[in-house]
Design a protein around this nucleic acid. Structure first.
Lengths: 194, 194, 194, 194
DNA sequence: ATCTAACCGAGACGGTACGTCACGTCTTACA
DNA sequence: TGTAAGACGTGACGTACCGTCTCGGTTAGAT
């Protein structure tokens, strides 16, 4: 019983929650103000009013900080209410996803992180570890599943569902609302067959 | 007559084709050797045995050099022979695409560039301007179109075709061959309906 | 009466003699191991197994700690037995002084402190306050005074006696034993005149 | 013939004399303004309007820069006119030396450098290599030599001459003018004997 | 037998200099 | 004019130490 206390109780000054929050807020602000590329560890420290060493003590890269800063926002931004009609449910989600990727601060961060992951293996592991889009997309797919008889495996489903949307945003040409609706229509058609 | 010469013929020493090739080769080598992130303008110049000024005279960023270095390779890597059966044609292309994205030098470059484009507006324009995947994907889709009655617009088609594959590679979990086949199957099902 | 107790007897936990000794030993060790320049307050605390705050509570600089650590050693290292012949007495001391400055740990510390005093006013006051060489040199000079009729003022005497030796060590070229003997010879000649 | 040109002509942009001068002036200024201890490589670069890399390209430590900055001033400050009377000649030099060590900017620098040399081997070599006091002191001693029959070796002479003065300044108690005169008197007495 | 005050160790805190690296520009000599 | 070489001013990198602070815990005299 006392042994547990020994394990829990840390010696020395405890980590400052104030500093942690200041850093996460600074990262959020800087992403919008100067963008991911121009965001530096030095800049984050200065904006947060925090020592540089404190940053390096708890995080290793700006990607890691950013991920911690946005992970909750992503889930929140992509939580949609759910509709009785399957098509509406899917469409609502994809509209939210497009809006998120194109305009939301957390969406910019998401794109920056996934982008960075393409040439930094450490970030790749980080992004892969944190489920960012998948959980929210699966929630929607699970909701409509009863109404759609022939859905493939959840992994493939999710990729077919959000993949085209994400791909288009990444290659600079987001779907129009028409295309979004047509995408949902063909998707449901294929998943309802047989 | 003379005016045309003034416009086209430049006075002074002409651009060195030797230097240009050396730079493009250096970029190719460095991408494989050290990766995109660790690739620097200084490093490219040294590897190519070229002055730093020469780089900045003809290109503005490493992204621009890399794009010029790989654009032909991308087209070549993604040109597939074509099969009588539509499903086989599509599948062959997607297998080539997956292999390209996961392993080919030009594929690594593609991912690095599209990744960088997410947080650098200049690179974004660059990547959007150069059609890298689209032309090759459309070529395949055009081949199978006669056999598939209800294909949506070419833009949406292409996105539905390659989007899920690209999305999965970008988020660290490439499709298995099974998933690839299932993807083609459901896609054709939806495009053949009514 | 009680007032005296209030002044002398402190309430609360008394200063730890164990910590004090550990610090002084750590400073001694570090001086030899890493040198004065590379010796840091942090390093001293770690080597002594002592909290950083404890250092700052009792000393302000590493110079102050070092001075406390060596002041007794200096006196001991420079105490020479005394000879019936004045020249031998002086020579014995100067040999001990040279050895001390060139090789003894306390001598290295002395040089480091006097050196630091040249660009740190606080250390300058510290070193000036503590008589390090003077008392031992004066003891020798007092012994020989009866045999030397025309010695100048003690202050000047001491400077003429040890100054050249210290100067030469500080500017990197210690006296040879021959030079030491010649130095004593001329010194005695001048102090014996008239 | 041409071989010499090849050796002399350097490729690339030549070293900026403007930057070199700016650095040496900055060091001079900073020594007086903030003192040697508070003088940093960063501070020098900023004061000189020079890149930090430029400092490290041509010098390794602030001591090295300072030495280059003051070496000419030292010689100039310690050049005395010479008097017909030997005692006056020596006294004039020692007065100049005292003034130099106590008040002159170059003298502060000299003390800082010799001080630093006591705990930094690299600076020790530097200071030992550059003859700072010796040449000027020897010049004076050479002038008076004809009038002083029994001077010891030049090395010992110089040490006996300036050593006591330097020692006293270093240990924070400069000679008074009286002591200076008495020092010269006893010195000449010993050097004139037999 | 508590209470209280000063000590102790550990270690996180906001700063700042370190020495290195790449940036994009410039200034040479040469082709 | 183009080129290779390389120095220039700028500024971020990740590390080290500064001196201060905030913990839990210890050790004494005072209550």
């Amino acid at each position: 019983m006392a042994a547990e206390d020994v394990a829990t109780t840390r010696v020395g000054r405890p980590r400052s929650e104030r500093a942690r929050r200041a850093v996460l807020h600074a990262v959020d602000d800087l992403l919008v103000d100067v963008g991911y590329a121009a965001m530096t560890m030095k800049g984050i420290a200065e904006r947060a009013g925090v020592g540089r060493q404190t940053l390096y003590r708890w995080w290793t890269t700006k990607a890691e900080i950013l991920l911690e800063a946005i992970v909750d926002d992503v889930a929140e931004d992509l939580t949609t209410p759910g509709c009785p009609e399957a098509a509406d449910d899917l469409l609502t989600y994809l509209r939210a996803l497009t809006e998120f990727l194109v305009a939301a601060p957390a969406g910019l961060a998401y794109r920056a992180l996934v982008g960075e992951a393409q040439h930094d293996p450490a970030v790749r592991g980080l992004v892969h570890g944190a489920d960012l889009l998948d959980t929210s997309a699966r929630a929607v797919l699970d909701r409509v599943r009863p109404a759609v008889p022939a859905m493939p495996s959840p992994d493939l489903c999710a990729a077919q569902f959000v993949g085209p949307v994400v791909y288009r945003v990444f290659t600079a040409q987001a779907f129009s609302d028409e295309e979004l609706r047509e995408h949902v229509r063909t998707l449901l058609a294929s998943w309802s067959q047989r």
